[in-house]
Simulated assay, not measured.
Amino acid sequence: MEEKKPVKKDQEIVYYQEDEIDLYELWLILKKRWKVVVSTPLIFVITAVVYIFIAKPVYTSSFFVKIPKNISGYIKYNEKGVLRISPVYLFSQEETISLIKRFNYKSKDFSFIIASESKEKENKETIKIEIGVYKPSIIPDISKSLISYLNSNPYVKRKIETERAKLQIFIKESKDKLHEMEKTKELIYKDLKNGKIQNLGFNPLDLDTKILNIKKEIAELEIRLKNLKGFEISVYPAIPEKPSKPKKKLILAVSVVSGLFLGVFLAFFFEWIENASRRHKEKQL
């Protein structure tokens, strides 16, 4: 930008500032300070390359866990990926450290563990667990260990045991009821055959229908009891072939752009410092 130029008007000096930017003058400044413009992004790129070589590659994988129906309403998440199964928090920073020790892994094997709600409509009853590790070969073992950890939660165990006891009571009551119905049916048919009962007042075939319904109810309850297993993996994690971090291309691109912007800024800043210093010396003379 050109400096203010004095103009005499009625014995007075009037200063004005030109608004136009002389692009050629800017080019001359950049040409003059080319070392700064070139060396700054070069330093950034070298730093980025060193970081890429030093940084440990992180392998990311995710899997889905089926939530037991009796505790699905107690699952909560926060913005940091911390899973909360009331009243216990899981996968917080402290819990992750505890998990590492529990699984007999070293801290250098883990990068992060994040739990979140599945975004897929058909998987609303599932938890998405994303894990970052430095050794991809341990991903299958970690997923199994995490399921074991979830099912060992005292709150989860209590809810599962309560539901199991409830189902067992229902099955026992239904079987007792079935036994009584079958016994009653046997006596009625026996009395009908011997002519002891002339008029029942109801169709004896209705007993067969009720007995079948009770058997169906028992079968459904036994299936529910059999499937009561707590948390289960619904989609197993894949072992990634390439690391997700560090993002080499992105880091290099950002370093080049950032270094170039800073280099241009420094070039103009040094030029301004030099001009200001020169004007200051001229005034002193």
Rank of each mutant, 00 (worst) to 15 (best):
K172P: 13
A115L: 02
K190M: 07
I160A: 14
Y155G: 13
A238Q: 08
L221G: 04
K108G: 05
G132C: 08
I138F: 00
A238Y: 05
K119F: 09
S137Y: 01
Q198D: 14
E220A: 13
L187G: 01
I188Y: 00
Y134L: 09
E130P: 09
N199R: 08
K190E: 10
K193N: 15
Y134W: 03
I160Y: 10
K108C: 04
K159W: 10
D109Y: 00
K185N: 07
N203H: 06
S111P: 07
K119A: 14
Q168C: 13
K124E: 14
N151K: 04
I233E: 02
K157E: 15
E125S: 13
I127A: 08
Y155E: 14
I171H: 10
K210A: 11
K210D: 15
M181P: 04
F112Q: 06
K216A: 12
H179S: 15
F110K: 02
D176G: 13
K229P: 01
E120F: 08
K229Y: 00
K108Q: 09
I147W: 00
E161L: 15
D141I: 02
S148N: 11
L192G: 07
I114G: 06
I113R: 01
M181C: 02
K196Q: 11
E130V: 12
K196W: 06
I211W: 11
Y189E: 10
F231T: 03
I129G: 09
L200T: 06
S116G: 09
E120R: 08
K245P: 10
P240F: 01
E173N: 15
I139A: 00
D208E: 13
I188E: 03
F112N: 06
K183D: 14
N203Q: 14
P204I: 04
E173H: 14
S137H: 04
N213C: 09
F231H: 02
I160C: 14
K166G: 15
L207Q: 11
F170S: 13
K159H: 10
D109P: 03
K190Y: 03
I223M: 04
L200H: 04
I131V: 13
A219C: 11
K157L: 13
I160V: 13
G201M: 07
E241H: 02
N151P: 05
S137D: 11
K135V: 05
K193C: 08
I211Q: 12
A165H: 15
Y134R: 07
A238I: 03
P237W: 00
A115D: 04
N153T: 09
K121N: 10
E232L: 05
V133C: 09
P136M: 01
P140M: 01
I239H: 03
K157Y: 09
V235I: 04
P204V: 03
K190W: 02
